[in-house]
Write a protein that binds this DNA or RNA. Sequence first.
DNA 1: CCTACCGATCGGTAGG
DNA 2: CCTACCGATCGGTAGG
Lengths: 196, 196
Amino acid sequence: MKTASRSNNRLEVLLSSAAELFSTFGYQATTTRDIAKKCGMLPGSIYYHYPNKEALLVAVYQEGVRQLTERVQSVLATSDDPWERLELMLATHIEMIVEPTAYASVIIRILPDNVPSVEAELTRLRDQYEVVLRDLVGALPLPLGCDRRLMRLFLIGAVNHVHVWYQPGGSSPSEIAKELLRYFRCPAQSNSEGSS
Amino acid sequence: MKTASRSNNRLEVLLSSAAELFSTFGYQATTTRDIAKKCGMLPGSIYYHYPNKEALLVAVYQEGVRQLTERVQSVLATSDDPWERLELMLATHIEMIVEPTAYASVIIRILPDNVPSVEAELTRLRDQYEVVLRDLVGALPLPLGCDRRLMRLFLIGAVNHVHVWYQPGGSSPSEIAKELLRYFRCPAQSNSEGSS
DNA sequence: CCTACCGATCGGTAGG
DNA sequence: CCTACCGATCGGTAGG
């Protein structure tokens, strides 16, 4: 049986193969030949789908952001409590970045300035996703004097670092998210503030 | 005037050139020719000092850990208060990793698994430094039920991420460290714990 | 004309 | 440290 869209039937496996290799070994260390081999193509065949290696990375990044956003939005629909929503978001984020085959790992492993030729585009995609976290932090009831931008940056740093130390036998993603927010739920009032 | 150790008089500039390039562009993206050019050598001459590119990275890593440990130990001598000591350590750490020419940036930019052939050695060096943080977190007066290991991992993730978003015009390293510890000083008591 | 690649090779660069 | 190179592999492209 012939299908009309046979042209894209190997694009998916190409993208997921690239995602897995990029997230495991990094961008520079992954060769186009590695990617081709993993998805059963010959080395040159990648260039039928993408004009170059950078464009392939951008495509993986896009899919990563899409998957992260989709999953996060779906769990956010289950709660109205600001702290619970943040905890759900962080738990889902951790879940997705510790899954080594996932596109999401690429987004935290490959920093935009690792690939200068597409740095602006990668930054745009990251920022697009981080808006979700910014809004969740923005909705929290916090004492005056809390810098929500810094809080967001501390949280994203802490959860992305989980990718480095996570072990399947240890704390689960939701346990990690819960323990992290234990600290942020009750910030100490800033004291000894000099007049400025 | 001849000196006996003429053989090492360019080693320092080789190491610092490598550190700057590794921290700016990453390990894979920095070529041995880039490094040689930066310190006025010809491509092959690096191999007079180090047997290969990995060994050069290890030397940079070692110097980074040495400098970080030295600076941190010196500021720790100025206080006996556990929370103040932790804040001083974190502020010093941030200071050193946002300085782009510093060896310390290499340690947080190049993860051990970026270079599998020397992964064990790089991990050993990182762990050696992180012992300082482990001891500082261990000395804190904390409520029961706080997981000090997780707290340490959250802190190191948050401060290392500063390297990504730090802008010279914004919050200073010590302001960032102070604001971060505001959250960790007063963890919420864990509630709704089910019996297990 | 198109889809989905292949066999071979391009200009350059890697560590040594 | 330099000169003069090597084995191999890199990302990318040729015609079919």
